[in-house]
Design a protein around this nucleic acid. Structure first.
Lengths: 212, 212, 212, 212
DNA sequence: CATGAATGAGTGTTCATTCAT
DNA sequence: CATGAATGAACACTCATTCAT
């Protein structure tokens, strides 16, 4: 790190875990845990099968590392942006849901969430970690926005705890859809995610409107 | 049927499919489709591996039978009941969502839905089967209820297609919650599903209310 | 047997072994020993799987019985006919080869010979039996015809022992062809057996012609 | 090759395919294609089951490789040698038939041909492969020789297509004899293959002689 | 005698993991 | 450190054989 004269080879060595994690992320998201072969990960990372097991003692540990590495990242950003928002709470809610989809749901990274839900049963520690570091912060963010709406008089005094799920459920649903049945391109009319989010947010905002 | 003196062999034969289906449901829900071994199903049903294949020609067909028995059946039932409902469409919608949860979502069988979302990518034929026999009928049912609301003047002329997902997403969400992260019993305050459904239905019905 | 009043049921019982052997012959010829399933034989014979094992203690014993039953039959006939033949020995040879093909080679029964050659390694006793009861009598017949030709001056004093094989080999070849690769209907130009036999016999007769 | 210090691992790796092919040839010939278990081949070659599939993607491909190595190769060789032959066509035919027997028919490898005739019906793809890579080239070779004889005036203008079978049938017959009924060593007077071939070739050449 | 439900050993193939080089 | 050859447990499915009825 502090020596600028280190060999290129050595620099590569330090990057190995990162390259492996990246390759593993791609493949786990694309094919699931069981269907991803260890050798495939190694090949995509440009190393041999043996090397993979040099850095990660087993496929399970590799999976855990992938989730740990990718799961915490995109949480905090949304919070500060929401705090600086200066419009109606309905607009904020709609904007937030759409942005979440654009920045996260629509990207490869959302595959991690799908992965977590799919494999939670087999990796309870991960599930716990995911809950603490992703789900609960996200819930806090939504709670903040709903409370802002109530405080500003944009919303009725709705049941905040349950409404949080009314906000999050469709987003989770879209992610699952995108990464599971939605993947099977068939002739069925697929959802248009942004349109659906807009529609759902509108329904919620109307449903939370004060004055009834 | 009317002969109490039927042979023990025959009595068992008639029971086999049911016993196998039950064992298969348990194991598929517990471990997923791919990770459930055919022999394990047989053993849990108290028979040998060969016997399983005497009644179901393949693991995939066994799974389909489990789906038909446990998932498609409740949907079909819901349809006839919805057709005979005589109240406001808001009441119907709420009742339907709650009933779906009580009869299906809250039961072991809902694990099949979770499983399908997790493994759909790796078993396209099963995914297609599930889509045809479960998802599409369910969507039709919801569409019917929403259209009824519009026709009766209970609802605005809302965008039916997207609203279908606003109705289904929270139910899917509850199922995922129950079978993945929610399965890790921690000290976290869990959702109360019936309360949430009631709340969400109320939000939707208000959001769809005519006259605005 | 001596009681004409026996029940139809009982008469059937006595026929069972024969019916099973017939069904087994068909299937063994059609699909080979390994690929023929015991149940299929039973079904074709109109009985249950269990019944088959009541009459034959194993699939191997069934096979042996099939061969024993069918193998000895069509040998003796040719001999008497050859003895009464009143033409040139070349005509006799050609006629005999063609008749053998028409009466035996072209029929289902020739499948037995193919079967024997294919499975001889697994059933040495059968192979020995086949050799004694089929091959050697047939060789004697051919020897007789060749000797007649030499005695009458129709043929040179050829090496009879080896010429026997020159006569039989193409017939065996046709049987193998018919029951193995020939079975795979492809676009390849197949042999016309009678034409080939006529041609081969002509070559042999010319090759054995005296006076060179 | 030129480096005597290559690793033991690598040296073994290069030898693996050959060792496996040899083991496979032995077992296929001894027990047939279907009855030979993949693991048995591996064990006889001194490796584990998994290793076999490292070198050959399936049992069928292993078999095809055995065919190419042991059966197709001699045929190809014969073609070039026949092209360079400078004697009468009768001598060429006799020489070719004898050489075929010495180099192939008399060896273990000829068991492959016997095996193919026995199992062709159950493995159509293998049969097709054998037909394309062995039978048709062999027929072409014989056709070439016969045509050469006609062109040079060594033979009459015989029916080439049928004569091909007159040439090949006794060779096939010898192979079947060697690997089936002939395998059961009994006191019976066996054929002397080379003597028979010489005799048969002589008969054919005489039968094809021009001028009658 | 006859049935057919039940059995379980057997087989080709995959893949996470190890370890000699 | 890195490699990749080798391993062997695992798994869905088949079918000859048994035996309770």
């Amino acid at each position: 790190m502090s020596d600028p004269h280190q060999h290129k080879r050595e620099r590569r060595k330090q990057d190995r875990p990162g390259e492996l994690l990246e390759a593993a992320l791609d493949l786990f998201v694309e094919k699931g845990f069981a269907a991803t072969r260890a050798e495939e990960v190694a090949v995509r990372a440009g190393v041999s099968k043996g090397t993979l097991f040099l850095y990660f003692p087993s496929k399970e540990e590799l999976f855990k590392a992938v989730v740990m590495e990718n799961v915490a990242r995109p949480v905090a950003q949304g919070i500060t942006e929401a705090e600086n928002f200066t419009g109606s709470s309905g607009e904020l809610l709609t904007w937030m849901m759409l942005e979440w989809w654009r920045r996260y749901g629509a990207t490869k990274a959302s595959g991690i969430s799908k992965l977590m839900m799919s494999e939670a049963g087999n990796f309870p520690e991960l599930a716990q970690f995911f809950r603490s570091n992703v789900i609960q912060p996200a819930q806090s963010l939504v709670r903040m926005v709903l409370q802002r709406g109530i405080d500003r008089g944009d919303f009725r005094a709705i049941d905040v705890d349950n409404t949080i799920y009314s906000v999050m459920a469709p987003l989770i649903f879209l992610v699952m859809e995108k990464h599971s049945t939605g993947a099977c391109s068939g002739p069925q009319p697929s959802i248009n995610p942004e349109q659906f989010i807009t529609h759902h947010a509108d329904l919620l905002v109307r449903g939370m409107a004060p004055g009834h």
